[in-house]
Amino acid sequence: MILQNVVWTVWLIGAALIALGFIFVIVQAGKPADAGAGEKSVHTSHVLQGWLFAVLLVAFFVGSWATLHRFPLPPQHRPLDAAQVVEVVGRQWSWQITPATVQNNSVVEFRVTSDDVNHGFAIYAPDGRIVTQTQAMPGYTNKLLYRFEQPGTYTVQCLEYCGLGHAPMKTTLEVVAAKGE
């Protein structure tokens, strides 16, 4: 499943729940309670507050473990031993990618840097969705690992504003089927 679709769905559901909570409270806001009912609702609210805190805390721990137990970024200070290595240099306003063809289904290490200002090295799949990215920064080399799962022509697009030629700063990357596929 495409990650962007998951995020979009999660946000839509979350925003809908938040909106429902507001609608419920707004509808109730014009129905004044007498003193007894008022005290009871304050007590109920405190209990709900405790439960909400507990639920969010559990979500925090579960979510953090699920998204971080396998850290999504590769180590930067030791060799990565990837089967393929691609050197990437960004400069106003072009990309130098060597080699510009990689094989499908084997890990590629992108070594990304910049000759001048900050750029964003983003790889778009043939369907127009971003599959991964890192920053291209002068004086630093960011190492990015990615395994392509579909052959095709991918687009490398600058995603960090870098001046007048930022939007057209793009090139292509060919992903070919591995031998035997």
Binding site: V25, A29, A33, V42, Q49, L52, F60, G63, S64, T67
Partner: peptide, 27 residues
């Protein structure tokens, strides 16, 4: 990441719930 997630807790648990309590069955 961790602080971004936790920084939502005071917003929701304290301010939003506090405001909801204030709004609920109000005049």
């Amino acid at each position: 990441q961790i602080v971004s997630w936790t920084s939502g807790l005071p917003v929701v648990v304290v301010t939003a719930m506090g405001a909801f309590t204030n709004l609920y069955r109000a005049n």
